[in-house]
Amino acid sequence: MSAVKTILEKHPNAKRESLIPILQDIQESCGYLSREVINQVAEYIDLPAAKIYGVATFYNQFRFQPLGRYHVMICRGTACHVKGSKKALDMVVKALGIQPGQTSRDGLFSLGVVACMGACGLAPVVNINGEIHAKVTPKKLSGIIAEIRAKELSNAKK
């Protein structure tokens, strides 16, 4: 919370124009925008919470749930699309039971989509916690997810 305060103090007399930079700074430092934080920002710049939520959801970059332990980012850029990234996305949505922008209830996975990762030659591309997986197929992806789940399960048992 105090991190948020520090960020707000960096924007004295903030008005509407500062909303996006403030939200970006907060997401950078907290990983996501919580209800508490949005209410706090609402009060600080005297904007209704519904407005702020509306603006924030307009952009893909903002999240409203904390990241999962594994953050899965699927590229939906043109090259990846042509190579079938939609199928990969559908498969992940089904397997994890969450939509892009959401986090699974157990906190293990979160899902995001990006426009282009600049690795079009490897399309379709999926990035999990910074690790790039090239030329993924739904089958390959489900294998990766199963692997992660198994690993976490055995860790939990230890």
């Binding site: 209800r35 949005i38 209704p48 919470a49 519904a50 407005k51 702020i52 939520y53 509306g54 959801t57 307009f58 409203f64």
Partner: peptide, 17 residues
């Protein structure tokens, strides 16, 4: 109390959060 949420073909009218 309400505003447009999201954008494009996924936009809808709703409350904060």
């Amino acid at each position: 109390a309400i505003d447009f949420i999201g954008r494009g073909c996924k936009a809808f009218v709703g409350t904060a959060f």
